[in-house]
């Protein structure tokens, strides 16, 4: 069971109150991209075993989207942060580095 704190309303919401939105911080491939990069944008995901950045929606609560950083293997949650950003904030990255010293980021 996952408990994620929604940054929009401050509620520690149960997994069943949330809707998953998949991997976060994807770069949209626009009309200028070629077929291969568009396919990558649509279908190819990092799917790491370990630190993962995700989008979630507090669907049974305030209805807002937010981001979460968690470990897919241990279910440890490093933190949640606003949806209005294109990269994880530094305080979240610092927490991850403190807990996972060898972690270099999901390339």
């Amino acid at each position: 069971m996952l408990l994620l704190t929604c940054p929009a309303c401050g509620v520690a919401a149960d997994e069943t109150e949330l809707a998953p939105g998949g991997e976060a911080h994807l770069t949209r491939v626009g009309p200028d991209g070629d077929d291969a990069s568009f396919e990558g944008y649509l279908f190819q995901r990092a799917n790491p075993r370990g630190v993962h950045f995700e989008r979630w929606r507090h669907v049974y609560g305030c209805g807002k989207w937010f981001h979460a950083a968690r470990d897919t293997a241990t279910l440890e949650v490093f933190g949640t942060y606003s949806a209005q950003t294109t990269a994880p904030p530094d305080d979240i990255l610092d927490k991850i580095k403190a807990r996972r010293p060898g972690w270099e980021g999901n390339a």
């Binding site: 509620v11 919401a13 149960d14 069943t16 109150e17 049974y60 609560g61 305030c62």
Partner: peptide, 10 residues
């Protein structure tokens, strides 16, 4: 006031 889930509904 807390919006949440009761059984199967909001």
């Amino acid at each position: 006031v807390r919006r949440t889930r009761l059984g199967q509904v909001a």
